[in-house]
Amino acid sequence: MKFAHIAALIGGLLAIAPASAETLIRIGYPGTGIDDRPYAYGDYVAVANVQQLVEAEFKDVPDVKVTWTFFRGAGPALNESLAAGQLDFAAGLGDLPSIVGRSRGLQTKYLASAGSHDALYLAVPPDSQLKTVEDLRGHKVAQFRGTNLQIATDRVLEKHGLTEKDIRFVSLDSNAATAALVSGNVEASFGGSEYLDLAKRGAVKIIYSTKNDDPTLGRNSGLLVTAEFEKAHPEFTAKVVRAFVKAARFGSDEANRQAVFELWSKAGLPVESFEADFKDEPLAHRLSPVVDDFIIARYKDQAERAKAYGLIKKDVDIDSWFETKYLKQALLDLELKNYWSTFDAKGQKVTEGQVEHTKAASN
């Protein structure tokens, strides 16, 4: 009777217990909008977030919840969260912080490009006498240290005969750097499209852009998953990648240019900033998820530079980091295998994607 009673009790507990525990899919993004708004901009990750495309992939999967976290501290703060086991995916993580994380033992897989050829701008006060990158020697310049902005800036300096030692850098996050520049507390600042609206309003002036320089300059970012999550949930990993590829497809279509800019404006920047940032440039040039020779070369180059600059202490194995099977399957399933152009290691186009044949919207 005792065993029968215990069996009945266990059976009752199983009957009232949930069929399966909830699975969290925790996505981190290395940045925020203006005034810390929980929105991204300038990439397809922002499209996926606003349109809830990842959530839509799991609409028929019970007990799955998707959460998003936006980090004001950018890549370094996101890396800390990864190290603490608080995230499963890093979406839009810049090349330098992801390389630093890998060098320090973070177990991740690089699934897809989340952005490439991202333009870099050099802004100065409107009355500044600085006119070129070379003029920065000895001046006080804002830079978000530890992010992909740092190594992208270092490459620009190198192309123009300078090094970090020639500049009086002040480490400030994007919002603080903008405020410091406008108030005159720094003499220049490297950054992204956030400076274009200020330039239009006469608060700053842009004296340099990577858009008119070497095609290997600029910033790159990726979509990463923790090795633990990918091993435990390969089918969920595939769904997440599929959702982001859908976002990249929408974001790369010139027919959606205005809609994409309006979506990005939720981060607090005006549509006009994105119109200026992407002037005479197809959306697909930056919003491609494809991992081609250009992307691989950029990460290898950044890893070498990070070690040379003392940002990491040991070599980083880049080749074994990339896990593109989910991306390839998503491109095949969604009939997008040849949708985006591919580029060689020097940034020259190798194959022309189908997206190139779509009619570009007027700029």
Results as ranks from 00 to 15, higher is better:
Lys2Glu: 15
Ala21Lys: 15
Gly28Ala: 08
Ile34Phe: 02
Asp36Cys: 07
Asp43Ile: 07
Tyr44Asn: 01
Ala46Lys: 12
Val50Trp: 09
Val50Ile: 12
Val54Lys: 09
Ala56Asn: 08
Ala56Met: 02
Glu57Phe: 02
Lys59Arg: 07
Pro62Gln: 10
Val64Trp: 08
Lys65Asp: 06
Val66Arg: 08
Trp68Asn: 13
Phe71Arg: 10
Gly73Val: 10
Ala77Lys: 09
Leu78Trp: 08
Glu80Ala: 06
Ser81Arg: 15
Ala83Val: 13
Ala84Val: 07
Ala84Asp: 02
Gly85Asn: 10
Gln86Ile: 04
Gln86Arg: 07
Gly92Glu: 01
Asp95Glu: 04
Gly101Ile: 13
Arg102Ile: 15
Gln107Pro: 01
Ala114Asn: 05
Gly115Val: 00
Val124Pro: 10
Pro125Cys: 06
Pro125Ile: 01
Pro126Arg: 00
Val133Ala: 01
Val133Phe: 07
Val133Ser: 03
Glu134Trp: 09
Leu136Cys: 09
Arg137Ser: 12
Lys140Arg: 00
Val141Asp: 04
Ala152Tyr: 02
Thr163Val: 12
Arg168Ser: 15
Phe169Thr: 09
Ser171Ala: 04
Leu172Gln: 06
Leu172Val: 07
Asp173Gln: 06
Asn175Trp: 11
Ala177Cys: 02
Ala180Ser: 14
Leu181Ile: 13
Ser189Tyr: 10
Asp197Tyr: 10
Val204Glu: 14
Thr210Met: 02
Asp213Met: 00
Asp214Ser: 13
Pro215Arg: 01
Thr216Phe: 03
Asn220Pro: 03
Asn220Trp: 04
Thr226Arg: 13
Ala227Cys: 08
Phe229Pro: 08
Glu230Ile: 03
Glu230Trp: 02
Thr237Glu: 05
Thr237Gly: 01
Arg242Gln: 10
Ala243Phe: 10
Val245Lys: 12
Asn256Lys: 09
Arg257Asp: 04
Ala259Thr: 11
Glu262His: 14
Leu263Val: 11
Ser265Arg: 11
Lys266Asp: 06
Phe274Gln: 07
Glu275Lys: 14
Glu275Arg: 14
Asp277Gly: 13
Asp277Asn: 15
Asp280Lys: 00
His285Lys: 11
Ser288Gln: 06
Val290Ala: 01
Asp292Gln: 04
Tyr299Ser: 09
Asp301Met: 00
Gly310Ser: 06
Leu311Trp: 03
Ile312His: 07
Lys313Trp: 02
Lys313Ser: 02
Lys314Val: 02
Asp317Ile: 12
Trp321Lys: 12
Phe322Lys: 09
Glu323Asn: 11
Tyr326Arg: 06
Lys328Ala: 03
Ala330Cys: 02
Ala330Pro: 03
Leu332Gly: 12
Lys337Thr: 00
Trp340Tyr: 05
Trp340His: 04
Trp340Pro: 01
Ser341Leu: 08
Asp344Ser: 06
Gly347Cys: 02
Gln348Lys: 10
